[in-house]
């Protein structure tokens, strides 16, 4: 196989890996929106926060694996705290209150991160096991990218099982469709919502940890990647996992190939794509009307 083909293959893997991580973050956002009707504008910030937690855990324990376990959970705890003490209080105000509040929380996290960790790029190295390339057929694939894809799939599988196959999942979905009824049945709906929010943030956290070794950790993460995740969810349709998946993969490929062919235009293409989709379908590709 010639050089161009292997270059394209590597590029495609990069694109898909990035797309899968985007999907992981976007799926978290979507779970929260689909279940609670809240568009969590702080989602990108949580994602970045997880990357910082990852940096600190790696610095303390020296183990990336420990970070993969601990950092998302820590982030989820922060998320649960925010839900319990802030978001719940403004829910009566409707979409406007939630949007402005979560925007405020996003700013607070960004400010806090700059305060505690500074503004420099903090490097995290890929664990040795995942370094290097693997040969499949005649082509080389970077192991870490494959790991990213597999991990994202595993997390998503767990999520799907949890939400669609267990009793807990049934309660959550029932709580969404008829809040008062479930409340009357003696199930603590606010607790369920807190749990859902935590799960959503946890997924963003996994994304943050996984992407940290590739992009390094810096305050712009929330803007760069978080923004992409928003665009994915909004374009794919709020609350639609299918839409988010398709758009994530398109964006992943677009950003990896786009950068190669016309680096100048990649952001224009992505934002333009979103504007175009929303112009035709204001609720996104697969979204349902509020």
């Amino acid at each position: 196989m010639d050089v161009t083909a292997s270059m394209y293959a590597a590029q495609a893997i990069h694109g898909i890996a990035f797309g899968m991580v985007l999907f992981l973050i976007a799926a978290g956002l979507n779970v929260i929106f689909g279940m609670m009707g809240i568009l969590n504008l702080a989602h990108g910030a949580f994602f970045m926060l997880a990357a910082y937690f990852c940096y600190s855990v790696v610095a303390m324990t020296g183990s990336f694996w420990a970070a993969l376990l601990i950092a998302p959970v820590l982030t989820a705890l922060v998320g649960v705290f925010v839900e319990r003490f802030f978001i719940r209080k403004v829910q009566i105000m409707g979409a406007m209150g939630e949007l402005i509040l979560t925007l405020g929380v996003a700013m607070l996290i960004l400010g806090g991160v700059k305060f505690f960790w500074g503004t420099e790029n903090l490097p995290i190295s890929v664990p040795p096991v995942l370094e290097g390339m693997v040969h499949i057929g005649a082509l080389d694939y970077p192991i870490y990218r494959i790991f990213m894809i597999v991990l994202a799939l595993v997390v998503l599988a767990i999520m799907t099982l949890l939400l669609y196959k267990t009793r807990l999942g049934k309660i959550v979905r029932a709580a969404v469709s008829d809040r008062e009824m479930v409340n009357a049945l003696g199930i603590n709906v606010p607790l369920v919502f807190m749990f859902v929010f935590g799960i959503g943030v946890w997924m963003a956290g996994i994304g943050g940890v996984v992407i940290a070794p590739i992009l390094t950790v810096f305050p712009g993460l929330a803007d760069q990647v978080g923004m992409y995740a928003f665009i994915v969810v909004v374009t794919g349709g709020l609350g639609s996992l299918k839409g988010a998946f398709i758009v994530s993969i398109i964006f992943g490929l677009l950003s990896s190939f786009g950068i190669q062919f016309f680096s100048q235009l990649a952001p224009v293409l992505i934002v333009g794509f979103m504007a175009f989709v929303l112009a035709i379908k204001p609720h996104g590709l697969f979204g349902v009307k509020e």
Partner: peptide, 27 residues
């Protein structure tokens, strides 16, 4: 394009259009 919707969709569409304009002005 925007008067058909309200709430979250209205807010997000504007973020999209404004970002598009920003990127265009930049490029």
């Amino acid at each position: 394009l925007v008067v058909r919707v309200g709430g979250t969709a209205f807010a997000m569409m504007h973020m999209a259009f404004a970002q598009l304009l920003y990127v265009i002005a930049l490029k």
